[in-house]
Write a protein that binds this DNA or RNA. Structure first.
Length: 422
RNA sequence: GGAGAGGUGGCAGAGUGGUUGAAUGCACUGGUCUUGAAAACCAGCAUACGUGUAAGCGUAUCGAGGGUUCGAAUCCCUCCCUCUCCGCCA
């Protein structure tokens, strides 16, 4: 959510930033609405002042046993005027709010312009891709041959875009998740959290999924929504709070299932478990001081990368262009892991700095020392990592000619020492 | 899910229609005193918005949202949450 006062003072900066996102300039319309709103509000408040004063007079007069009919008449006249103004004020506020709530965050100056995935900028390529002396299979073939991955059975239960893992592959998935959580908590100081995965619409509004992206989400019959990412419960942990400055940065992580309806993704990645309606993810969220969000962003990227490094998987780091940037983000790094089965890099993590955009929506603030005012915190979120996709990466990168899979060293302690899945 | 009790400032806790943004205590901040500290004493101490160059002034906020009233923390309605008891349940 943008600060209308900031827009009022920086209309040109605001417009050029949202234009980089491919949106039309909006400051004129917003400022006009806001001006009207304030005029009406001021007028209304003046009337309220008068009403309060007159009501007090009535109280005093009654106490003295004096006549109050004339005063009552005055107040009643005021009230009818106020009624109309009150309605106008409400309408204008709602209109302004609706417009503001659907405008995405402004891209940071170092977010490259562009409107397609191809315009993302590759920063670095890390690790070395495996070389196979046979033709690499994809995870579907590998998994089905190992009898540990069934899309058919998942189809019976839930339809397309679901999978059933079983045996060592199911365990490998669990091992990956445990490994990730251990690295993030022990080495990077994130606090493990087990949050609800059903949330109210307010929470989704806070992180920016609502009101605009309802069609990407699953809603229950009880007015609760399934989370599309643990970013939602983790970030909203601090909604409507004023934190003491010394609690910043607050770093939290959670392993949760994530649910996405994948509306609009028809025909995309239909094979395999790359794009599912349900998947597990270890999420990282940092709540930090505005001065530190840039370095916190780099730190978070490092924490996500660490998982890939330890698993010895090849990947590249990409900065998303304005057209690929999520609604709430100012700047996003994607990590793309090498998938031999697809012969290309695929997204496995996305680390975003949201600045104070989400904090404003959810009213998450901090106060330093004894200063009077509270300031909005900055929020960041990143995958550390997507577990399902990481499973794919391990399977495809660690496959052997006979279709077996070598268990990466780091994961063996989590697999009861198992070295091969076959 | 049923029955009951309750939600007031950072905390505790008054307040049941009138000049109450809200007594009092604690905590916190500044000052006096003191060699220093404690104690004591004095003063200050909510948030958001509007308005103004500013000092300031104003509006709203006593779980949330509506309503009654000239006037609501106080009365009415709806919802949320917490606690106790019962039922159900991993």
């Amino acid at each position: 959510m943008h600060d209308i006062r900031w827009i009022r003072e920086n209309p040109i900066t605001f417009d050029s930033a949202i234009e980089r996102r491919g949106l039309r300039a909006a400051s004129d319309e917003l400022i006009e609405l806001d001006t009207q709103r304030r005029e009406v509000q001021t007028e209304l408040q003046d009337l309220q002042t008068l009403r309060n004063e007159t009501s007090k007079k009535i109280g005093i007069a009654k106490g003295k046993g004096e006549e109050t009919r004339q005063l009552m008449k005055e107040v009643n006249e005021l009230k009818s005027k106020m009624l109309g103004l009150g309605e106008t004020e409400k309408t204008l506020s709602a209109e302004l709010n609706n417009l503001l709530s659907e405008i995405p965050n402004l891209p940071s100056h170092d977010t490259p312009s562009g409107n397609r995935e191809e315009d993302n900028v590759e920063l670095r390529v890390e690790g070395k891709r495996p070389k196979f002396r046979f033709e690499a299979k994809d995870h579907v073939t590998l998994g089905e041959n190992l009898s540990g991955m069934s899309f058919e059975r998942a189809g019976k239960l839930s339809g397309a875009r679901f999978v059933v893992l079983s045996g060592p592959l199911a365990r490998l998935e669990r091992a990956l998740a445990s490994f990730m959580l251990d690295v993030q908590t022990i080495e990077y100081g994130y606090t493990e959290v087990a949050p609800p995965i059903l949330v109210k619409d307010k929470a989704l509004y806070g992180t920016g999924q609502l009101p605009k992206f309802a069609s990407d989400l699953y809603k229950t019959t009880e007015e609760l929504w399934l989370i599309p990412t643990a970013e939602v419960p983790l970030t909203n942990l601090v909604s409507n709070e004023i934190l003491p400055e010394k609690e910043l940065p607050m770093r939290v992580t959670a392993l949760t299932p994530c649910f996405r309806s994948e509306a609009g993704a028809a025909g995309k990645d239909t094979r395999g478990m790359l794009r599912q309606h349900q998947f597990n993810k270890v999420e990282l969220v940092s709540i930090c001081h505005p001065q530190n969000s840039l370095e916190e962003h780099e730190r978070m990227l490092g924490a996500a990368e660490q998982i890939l490094k330890r698993l010895d998987l090849a990947y590249r780091v990409v900065v998303l262009c304005t057209g690929d940037l999520g609604f709430s983000a100012q700047k996003t790094y994607d990590l793309e892991v090498w998938l031999p089965g697809q012969n290309r890099y695929r997204e496995i993590s996305s680390c975003s700095n949201c600045g104070d955009f989400q904090a404003r929506r959810m009213k998450a603030r901090f106060r330093s020392g004894n200063e009077k005012g509270a300031q909005f915190v900055h929020t960041l979120n990143g995958s550390g990592l997507a577990v399902g996709r990481c499973l794919i990466a391990v399977m495809e990168n660690y496959q052997n000619k006979d279709g077996s899979i070598t268990v990466p060293e780091e994961l063996r302690p989590y697999m009861n020492g198992l070295k091969f899945i076959n």
